[in-house]
């Protein structure tokens, strides 16, 4: 097995260019500005949680998949990270359920 088959050899395998990284940065900034703008719209107060958690999830995914290269790297890296993330989310939900936060 040649070293070129090493699965995390990736730097020329479709990674974004510097310009694309800047574009991603602009998108992240725009989403943050949107979050802050929504915060001051009283009419949307009843759906704030859904909007904020949704936009936060989008930002999270963009950084993880593009800046951290999970989209381009071996799936085992994603597996280790998302298992940890899933367990963390489960801890949050379990603690809140057990201690009556819902």
């Amino acid at each position: 097995m040649s070293t070129s088959e090493n699965v995390d050899s990736h730097h020329d395998s479709g990674h974004p260019t510097a310009k694309q990284y800047v574009l991603i940065g602009i998108i992240l900034t725009l989403i943050t500005m949107l979050e802050v703008a929504v915060f001051y719209v009283e009419a949307l107060r009843s759906v704030f949680a859904v909007i904020f958690l949704g936009l936060s999830a989008v930002k999270f995914a963009i950084v993880a998949f593009y800046y951290m290269h999970l989209k381009f790297d071996h799936t085992l890296f994603s597996a280790f990270f998302f298992v940890g993330l899933f367990l963390a989310g489960s801890i949050v939900m379990a603690l809140m359920a057990i201690l009556g936060a819902f």
């Binding site: 699965v7 995390d8 085992l76 890296f77 280790f80 940890g84």
Partner: peptide, 27 residues
């Protein structure tokens, strides 16, 4: 595994750090 172990270890660490922050966020 043909994976870079240093990078894999970093991802394992980041996965475990999710639990660390998950506990604080829940609290």
């Amino acid at each position: 595994t043909k994976l870079n172990m240093r990078k894999l270890l970093m991802w394992v660490f980041l996965g475990s750090d999710c639990l660390f922050f998950g506990a604080f966020i829940a609290t």
